[in-house]
Amino acid sequence: MKVIIMCGGKGTRLREETSVKPKPMVEIGGRPVLWHIMSIYARFGFKDFVLPLGYKGEVIKQYFHDYNIRNTDFTVELKSGTIISHPGHVEDWRVTLCDTGQETLKGGRIKRIAKYIDSDRFMVTYGDGVADINLHKLLEFHKQSGTIGTFTGVRMPSRFGAVRTDAAGKILSWEEKPVLNEHINCGFFVFERRFLDYLSEDENCDLEKEPLQQLAAEGQLSMYPHPGQWQCMDTLRDSIKLNELWDSGRAFWV
């Protein structure tokens, strides 16, 4: 089953990092967040990735082009230019990298790489979020739902405290950063292949708008409620938090 990881956005809220690299290449513990996301899928046996590229996509291409050399010892025969790689640990992943346009939105990017989707079902996620998700349970939930698409929902803690008062303004309760009742979409999608018919190659085709709204209107979209943890890398604050979790041995997605 193919896993599509969206890698084309500009990451404007993380300009401290994304002025020189795409957001999926921002590092956690010395490895791109993209690598961490791929590792989550690989642990469940999903190792065939398609990466739709856009903003600074050449950085991601170069990273995987040089991946073997970066992660193994090698010998260079200077006269002939021959490079001999020595045995070492390199992940057994298959990665297809596709230019899908600088300004293309996510739905258009998926449609533009449709030729690389050779199965009846495929997975999609964003290139900036990690979770302690059980992908086998997600997949089974999707199969049982019988719908064309399934996304993963999480309940997030509020960034602020919540205060409840009576009509006179007297405090009835005070809760610091409560967990919100609503679920938010954190990615980790599963789609049947026929979802591609809901997409177009137009650069303005946005995944979360018409395509998913249409699925929902037709009763063809389900939500898998993830009970665990999820964290995106959307801002510098997020980047610092994720690296603190990694450095302290509390990386929940490992």
Rank of each mutant, 00 (worst) to 15 (best):
L139N: 03
S200A: 04
A217S: 05
I5N: 08
H65N: 15
P211Y: 06
V50C: 03
T165D: 01
I84K: 00
T165M: 09
G127D: 11
K10I: 11
R121A: 04
T100N: 01
C205P: 00
N68L: 11
A216H: 01
E17K: 15
D73N: 10
D66K: 00
K106N: 12
G127C: 06
Q220A: 06
M156L: 15
W246K: 13
Y126M: 07
A162S: 15
F191D: 01
V124H: 04
K137T: 03
G11C: 04
L138R: 07
K170Q: 10
Y198S: 02
F49L: 09
S19P: 08
D48E: 04
Q214W: 04
M123D: 09
D197W: 05
I113V: 08
R112W: 08
F44G: 03
E27R: 14
N185M: 04
R109Y: 02
G153T: 07
K111T: 05
R194E: 06
N204T: 04
K21N: 14
F46W: 01
R164L: 14
P52M: 00
V26C: 13
F141S: 01
Y67S: 09
N243Q: 12
G108H: 01
L105F: 04
G169Y: 03
L215H: 10
Q214I: 10
T125D: 05
D197C: 06
N71K: 07
H226C: 04
Y198E: 00
V90D: 02
L196A: 06
I171S: 06
M223T: 14
D197F: 08
Q220T: 03
Q102H: 14
L105A: 02
E192D: 13
A168N: 11
R237T: 13
F141H: 07
G146A: 06
G88L: 00
K177G: 02
S19H: 15
M233Q: 10
R193C: 07
E77C: 03
D120Y: 09
A167L: 12
K137R: 02
S145F: 03
F151G: 01
M25W: 06
T147D: 00
H226W: 11
L14H: 09
S248W: 05
V130W: 07
V163F: 05
M25E: 10
P52R: 07
T152G: 01
L135H: 01
V124F: 00
R109S: 12
E91T: 04
R15G: 14
T75Y: 08
L53I: 08
H226Y: 08
T235P: 05
R109H: 09
V76K: 11
I113K: 03
P32N: 11
I110Q: 04
S158P: 13
N185G: 11
L221E: 01
